[in-house]
Amino acid sequence: MTRDELKEHILKKYDGLLTPLETGVFDLMCEVKPANLTKVARMLYDDEQLKFDFLNNIAGVDTGEQFEVVYSLSSISNNLRLDFKLVLSYDQAVIDSVKDIWTAADWHEREIWELYGIDINNHDNLKRFLLPDDWDQGYPMRKDWDAPDFVRMPEL
C-alpha cells in the first residue's frame, strides 16, 4: 500500500476520526481528536488491511500555543507507516493511555507526563524516572521553562 492508497483508505474508513494534514513531510500525518484516541488506536490495531501493531514513538510537542502529542506507528505485517497527532490546549492537557493496545507506550507516556505535565488517564505507572525524585521545578520541556542559568543563543 502506497502513501496515497493509505490516505484513500483512511479517508474512506476513518472519516471524521482521522483527518489527514499537510504538515507531514514524508509519511502520512493525520489529526485525531483527544476524545477519540483509544477508539482510533483500537481500530488501527484491529484493521486487517492496516494492522498497525508496532508503536515506534510518541513525542510530546509544545508549540508555544498548545500541546501536541505525536504518535508514530508501523505495521510489521503490512509494512506501513502512519503518524497521527492530538492537539491539546494548555488548560485541558489530558490524554488517555494507549498502553493496553501498544505496551510500548508505557514509558513514552510516562516521559510526556514527566517532562510536559500532560496527564495520562488509566496509566498505572506514573512515576518520575528521567528527572530526580525530588524535582520541584516544573516541567522542563515546556517552552516557557528555562534552566536558572540558561542563556538563550542569539539569533543568527
Partner: peptide, 12 residues
C-alpha cells in the same frame, strides 16, 4: 549555513 526548513514535521 542559515538553514531554514519550511514548516512541517517528519519522523525519520
Amino acid at each position: 549555513p542559515k538553514l531554514k526548513p519550511p514548516e512541517g514535521e517528519v519522523y525519520s
